[in-house]
């Protein structure tokens, strides 16, 4: 057999070399990502009474998750908030990506992208905390608006509720939305747009019928890369959410670190991920006609 002959020369064939190289990162990801994720799923079928862990498989945690209204409420709210964050972030990011791609001189594009990404790399905790300072009752926004005479009473609907969480997360995830859309826009062949206009379409119709469909792979990527991580955000709801803006990650943390009920926390984590995955797959299916041509 030629395969057995090839064995001594392992490291010669292209596939073997590839496997040899990919092995270290793959083993790392298997041991520290795949196995732990499997463990979380397994854990969610166990139960815990104070400090003793019962390894018998049970659906108790899931029954509790569905019967206790608080859990359902937190899961639903997390989905709604990250849905809102995604809509706000992607809609506000698109014009920026469009501007940088179409209206900035090629030599200055990387400068703009760099400027957009800098705030994202600075301390997340401190950025979120500063939104509390900006949005607070005596915060920067209220004192400024009052000083300018636009409002008489401080606005109270912007801190310690879901609105504050949406604003803060939209800020935190802005580059995640801008970059994939920018990349998709950069790939568009500019002569297609000229062709559209030469054939008598207006600017708006060219955008609607040529630019937007071609940019959709980037938009879909942006939606997923904002929607999935924000569902599990912990810091923002805790700092600016108030009681009405808490999300599922806060409950997962409580179960694991405060209530010593890791199996319940694991079940909530699995449920959150299942919901996010379901919504994401649905979203991809809805948009599959835009994704066909792209790699």
């Amino acid at each position: 057999m030629s395969e057995s002959k090839a064995l001594p020369k392992l490291g010669q064939s292209e596939a073997a070399q590839g496997y040899l190289l990919i092995a270290p990162p793959l083993l790392y990801a298997l041991a520290l990502l795949a196995v732990p994720l499997g463990a979380i799923v397994l854990f969610s079928f166990w139960s815990q009474d104070y400090l003793t862990l019962d390894h018998a498989l049970t659906l108790k945690n899931y029954r509790e998750a569905f019967s206790e209204p608080l859990y359902g409420q937190l899961l639903l709210r997390s989905l709604m908030i990250s849905g809102a964050v995604t809509v706000v972030t992607v809609l506000s990011a698109f014009p920026i990506a469009y501007f940088v791609s179409f209206h900035v001189a090629p030599g200055r594009k990387s400068m703009w992208i760099f400027l957009i990404t800098i705030p994202f790399w600075t301390s997340y905790l401190i950025r979120v905390f500063l939104w509390k300072v900006i949005l607070g009752y005596n915060g920067v926004l209220n004192t400024t608006l009052q000083g300018l005479g636009f409002i008489d009473e401080p606005l109270t609907f912007i801190l310690y509720n879901a609105n504050a969480v949406v604003i803060t997360l939209a800020h935190a995830f802005a580059p995640f939305a801008i970059l994939p859309i920018f990349v998709a826009l950069e790939k568009i062949d500019r002569s297609l747009l000229e062709a559209g206009r030469d054939l008598g379409e207006s600017h708006l119709m060219t955008f609607w019928r040529v630019t937007l469909p071609l940019a959709m792979p980037g938009v879909v990527a942006a939606v997923l890369i904002v929607f999935i991580p924000t569902v599990g955000d912990y810091v923002t709801p805790r700092l600016v959410g108030g009681p009405g803006g808490l999300m599922i990650a806060n409950m997962i943390q409580t179960q694991f670190l405060k209530l010593n009920n890791a199996p319940m926390g694991a079940a909530l984590a699995v449920l959150a991920m299942a919901m996010v995955t379901a919504v994401s797959i649905l979203f991809i299916l809805i948009n599959r006609r835009f994704l066909k041509g792209s790699k």
């Binding site: 520290l32 990502l33 196995v35 732990p36 994720l37 463990a39 979380i40 854990f43 997923l224 890369i225 999935i228 991580p229 924000t230 569902v231 599990g232 955000d233 912990y234 990650a249 997962i252 943390q253 694991f256 890791a262 926390g265 694991a266 984590a269 959150a272 991920m273």
Partner: peptide
């Protein structure tokens, strides 16, 4: 890259 960090954290913690 897309996984919520809390999921990475609790799954490692459990193991």
């Amino acid at each position: 890259l897309v996984l919520p960090e809390i999921i990475v954290a609790v799954s490692l913690l459990v193991v």
